[in-house]
Amino acid sequence: MEVAKLTDVTRIYKIGEVETRALNGISLTIQDGEFTSLVGPSGSGKTTLLQLIGCLDQPTSGRVVIVGKETTNLSRNQRADLRKGTIGFVFQFFALIPTLTAYENVEMPLLLNGKSASERKQRVMELLEAVDMTDRAHHRPDQLSGGQQQRVAVARALAPAPKMILADEPTANLDTENGEQVMEIMKRLNKETDTTFVFATHDPRVIKYATRVVTLRDGVIEKD
């Protein structure tokens, strides 16, 4: 099954008079269960592409279809709805909500998906277990190391059992050991749950985990 299908997608950023063609006519299909890495030099459009796949942004032209759903004409709220149950995000900076504990951060998307209290509890504990963070469940992000925060972020991305997780340089701020640990976890979850993973990275140690490598250069796909 196609989780994401992009057809001739262009994204132009306009700042004043200056136009930046971040993506230039990209067509890309992501299948169920892939563990795909987007690589390419800085400024080649990796983040932009992830944002389009993730419905965080809309293309200047072209079509984006997510789990069979055309997203071009969706409102902001409809896109939020689509993301909520379908797509999880892991960001380069450890994007946890600082006022919430690890547990509450993981619980957040479940709340937004209207899951019952008992369902939430079971799911959160299960996920914290999966990323080996059970003993830190009630710590706030500032009481966790970078690697631990990123593991919580992975757990949060997985919480609503999304079809696909998009990760933008998930290891860029981690040392080798923590980076590998996070990748191991993602790889394992990919296998166990059949969740699709797409991640942007420069990191060769990360690329080696990928089952498919898409290389971008100046907004076009150079190699697939």
């Binding site: 939020a80 709805d81 909520k84 995000f89 946890l96 600082p98 937004l112």
Partner: peptide, 16 residues
């Protein structure tokens, strides 16, 4: 700003 972005990214709606 960033936090709001994260919340909307994980599916929080405008009115929430």
């Amino acid at each position: 700003t960033r936090e709001i972005g994260i919340l909307t990214a994980i599916g929080m709606k405008g009115r929430q």
